[in-house]
Amino acid sequence: MNLREFWTQRTIVGLVLGQFLSLLITSTGFSSSELARKGINAPTSQSFLNYVLLALVYGSILLHRRKPLKAKWYYYVLLGLIDVEANFLVVKAYQYTSITSVMLLDCWTIPCVIVLTWLFLKTKYTLRKLTGVVICVAGLVLVIFSDAHAEDRSSGSNPIKGDLLVIAGATLYGVTNVSEEYFVKSADRTELMALLGFFGAIVSACQIAIIERTELKSIHWSAGAAFPFVGFSLAMFLFYSFVPVLLKISGSAMLNLSLLTSDMWAVLIRIFAYHEKVDWMYFTAFAGVAVGIIIYSGGDKKVDSSVDEVADGSTKQRSKRLDEEAGSNNQGR
Rank of each mutant, 00 (worst) to 15 (best):
Met1Val: 13
Asn2Gly: 15
Gln9Glu: 08
Thr11Met: 12
Leu15His: 04
Leu17Met: 13
Leu23Tyr: 15
Ser32Lys: 03
Ser32Pro: 03
Glu34Val: 13
Glu34Phe: 07
Ala36Asp: 10
Ser47Phe: 07
Ser47His: 01
Val52Leu: 15
Leu53Trp: 00
Leu53Val: 07
Leu54Arg: 07
Gly59Ser: 07
Leu62His: 07
Pro68Met: 08
Trp73Val: 13
Tyr75Gly: 14
Val77Tyr: 01
Leu78Ala: 13
Val84Thr: 10
Leu89Tyr: 08
Val90Tyr: 02
Met103His: 14
Cys107Leu: 12
Pro111Ala: 05
Phe120Asp: 04
Thr123Cys: 04
Tyr125Cys: 03
Tyr125Arg: 09
Thr131His: 05
Gly132Phe: 10
Val137Leu: 08
Val137Met: 11
Phe145Cys: 04
Phe145Lys: 13
His149Lys: 14
Asp152Arg: 02
Asp152Ser: 11
Ser154Gln: 14
Ser157Cys: 02
Lys161Arg: 11
Asp163Ala: 15
Asp163Met: 09
Ile167Phe: 06
Ala170Arg: 05
Asn177Glu: 02
Asn177Ile: 01
Asp188Asn: 15
Arg189Glu: 10
Met193His: 10
Leu195Arg: 13
Leu196Asp: 09
Gly200Asn: 04
Val203Arg: 01
Ile211Ala: 12
Ile211Tyr: 03
Glu212Gly: 04
Ala223Tyr: 08
Gly224Trp: 00
Phe232Cys: 03
Phe232Trp: 07
Ser233Phe: 02
Val243Phe: 01
Val243Pro: 00
Val245Thr: 15
Leu246Trp: 09
Lys248Ala: 11
Lys248Glu: 11
Leu255His: 09
Ser258Asn: 14
Thr261Arg: 03
Ser262Glu: 12
Trp265Glu: 04
Trp265Asn: 09
Leu268Glu: 01
Phe272Pro: 00
Tyr282Ala: 03
Ala285Pro: 00
Val289Ser: 02
Ile294Val: 15
Ile294Glu: 04
Tyr296Asp: 04
Lys302Ser: 08
Val307Asn: 09
Glu309Trp: 12
Gly313Arg: 13
Lys316Phe: 03
Leu322Met: 12
Ala326Val: 04
Ser328Gly: 00
Gln331Phe: 11
